[in-house]
């Protein structure tokens, strides 16, 4: 029993981390709470499916194509919806919310709701670890999650572009004055975040069927992780993913699986009530108090 909790806890944590990475990245780099995240996630799943089933594109080609298309969509959302309301946080939230709902409900209307919509796994089969049978796809999710988190950490800390974006997030005027184009930076962070959402979708969706409500659920997961970890902290994101992932697994194993999804609400409410800035949101709290 112990081994399975450990392994599936890790899988759930990695899933949460993957799902939250894109959202958190956009918030950290451009300060936009991208409520279209769930829409982009599902859009990526359907795009891969459509590329493969309508156009007959092989899976290995459909994957990079989808990631690029999602990135373009993210940048497009910035130019169409966000550029003119930049800095008006309330309007930004409404705008991304509207985009997200529009994408999801459009797919619902188009009839993407039946059981035929599934994505293939990368590698079929499973392996036994400490007496627990686990399929390769789930292991892959752990790997991709860790890899992406590490890559982003390196990107935002050690590359010129990442530093420029972070500078933008911290002080827009100063960044502007040293020649960083604000629109370009924000559009880029939207594109990056969306591409990561696509990677998450392509890795996670093969585990089940694609359904519209997942779009909303993914957003809730991303929100829960980001709020618990403290918006914009990568350490917080990883720790929060692990806490929530294991909380979910333990609930499912020892209590009742039907309570698994309610964990997010519980965590959200708990954190907001006790330490609203999240576990790692130290500086945020300072600012929020004033």
């Amino acid at each position: 029993m112990e081994a399975s909790v450990l392994i599936f806890g890790l899988v759930n944590s990695a899933t949460l981390m993957l799902v939250a990475l894109g959202f958190s990245l956009i918030f950290g780099l451009s300060g936009v709470a991208n409520l279209a995240h769930g829409g982009i996630y599902l859009f990526s799943g359907y795009v891969t499916w459509m590329l493969m089933n309508y156009l007959g594109v092989p899976f290995l080609l459909a994957v990079p194509l989808t990631i690029i298309i999602a990135g373009v969509l993210g940048a497009l959302i910035y130019w169409v919806a966000l550029k003119r309301v930049r800095g008006l946080h309330l309007s930004e939230v409404i705008a991304t919310f509207a985009v997200g709902v529009a994408i999801l409900e459009l797919f619902r209307w188009m009839g993407f709701v039946t059981y035929e919509f599934t994505l293939p796994v990368f590698i079929k089969g499973s392996v036994d670890i400490a007496g627990v049978s686990i399929d390769y796809q789930r292991l892959l999710i752990i790997g991709i999650g860790l890899l992406l988190a590490f890559a982003l950490w390196v990107f935002s800390r050690y590359t010129k572009m990442g530093l420029a974006l972070r500078g933008m997030a911290q002080d827009e005027y100063t960044a502007l004055s040293i020649g960083i184009d604000s629109d370009w930076a924000a559009a880029l962070s939207m594109a990056l975040g969306s591409a990561i959402a696509a990677i998450a979708a392509i890795s996670i969706l093969p585990l089940g069927i694609i359904s519209i409500n997942m779009g909303y659920e993914v957003l809730i997961m991303a929100l829960a992780v980001s709020v618990v970890g403290g918006l914009e902290s990568i350490t917080g994101l990883v720790v929060a993913s692990i806490i929530l992932g294991f909380a979910k697994t333990i609930t499912g194993t020892y209590f009742d699986p039907k309570w698994m999804e309610v964990i997010y609400l519980f965590a959200l409410v708990l954190v907001l009530a006790i330490k609203p800035s999240g576990l790692f949101g130290k500086f945020k709290e300072l600012e929020e108090r004033v």
């Binding site: 809730i220 929100l223 997010y264 609400l265 959200l268 009530a273």
Partner: peptide, 19 residues
Amino acid sequence: PVLRLRGVYFGLITFALPL
């Protein structure tokens, strides 16, 4: 609990609650 915070938190939590 969310009212202590500025910014987007209220929107996020009101989005999550009905679901």
